[in-house]
Write a protein that binds this DNA or RNA. Structure first.
Lengths: 145, 145
DNA sequence: ACAGGATAAGATATAATAGTCTTATATCTT
DNA sequence: AAGATATAAGACTATTATATCTTATCCTGT
């Protein structure tokens, strides 16, 4: 059950790495992140550009450059990251793949699925990057392969 | 949030159609199903072959041929269909895409995600084809585009 | 101003998924 | 036995997702 795209996996892990490492407010180079997390540098760069355009990240070039969060990690939810990378319609999906499921003509699993999605959404909304970062830096949870 | 593959969407919808139409025990031709549900005939055929090999369906050729369930629709859960089409490891996934997440070295969202997966699994296990079929034939829920 | 370190961006390659086409094979009806 | 009807199976194509490569651009320190 793959829910998130590779790009999203990478983006979330990368941001957690930044937070666990230096709080996320200081520059971290993409090269370092890609190396530590074993992620393709160029692929990660592109994902970061999206987060950049969405103003979740700010980037700076040159020596001591890198990327950093624009806001405190506690203020950034998983949800925000997911919506930026996967698109705003991420939760508007029918489990059976029907295009306009819900509007008056739901599929037979619509209500149940809607409920599940709402609960996932809530979870993603209430989980911040800071929450995740702490689990990596304090507990022994990991974001590396 | 695409959870199931196209093949799985099609397979589930097709089986629901059969159940809603004639209970699923009588032969229904793949051509009819593919036409009614607007699904590629050949693609659906391949999916049916998998369900066939898994003994969820039996097929017969020639006039009045088609496919039919091998067991009562009430005894077949969504879960079975999903596992056949997506593979038995369908629920063994890490939200962040880490290969061996869980075994002693969980990702920071592992527990939460495990809980969500278990609840989905339970839902899929306790929802039968008969349940879904009834909603289509009695209520006005749909499986067509 | 220059050199080196860093991201930006577009082009290209590869792999996985989805979809189509063709031929083979089985079964029923007459 | 012949013809019509249906699934089986493999080859082929298209599309999307993922990954890589190359060049451009910017920034900092000296």
């Amino acid at each position: 059950m793959k829910i998130l795209s590779r790009a999203c996996n990478y983006g979330i892990r990368a941001l957690i790495y930044m937070v666990a490492n230096n709080g996320g407010q200081e520059n971290t180079s993409i090269g370092e992140i890609s190396e530590e997390l074993d992620i393709s540098f160029h692929f990660l760069t592109k994902t970061f550009q999206e987060l950049n355009r969405a103003n979740l990240l700010k980037s700076s070039r040159g020596p001591n450059g890198g990327v950093a969060l624009t806001r405190p990690a506690a203020d950034i939810s998983m949800m925000e990251i997911i919506l930026v990378i996967e698109g705003d319609d991420f939760f508007d999906t029918c489990l059976l793949g029907l295009p306009d499921c819900g509007n008056g003509a739901p599929c037979p699993i619509h209500e149940v699925w809607k409920d599940k999605k709402d609960k996932m959404r809530l979870e993603f909304e209430t989980t911040s990057l800071a929450d995740l970062g702490v689990r990596v830096s304090e507990d022994k949870m990991r974001i590396t392969i």
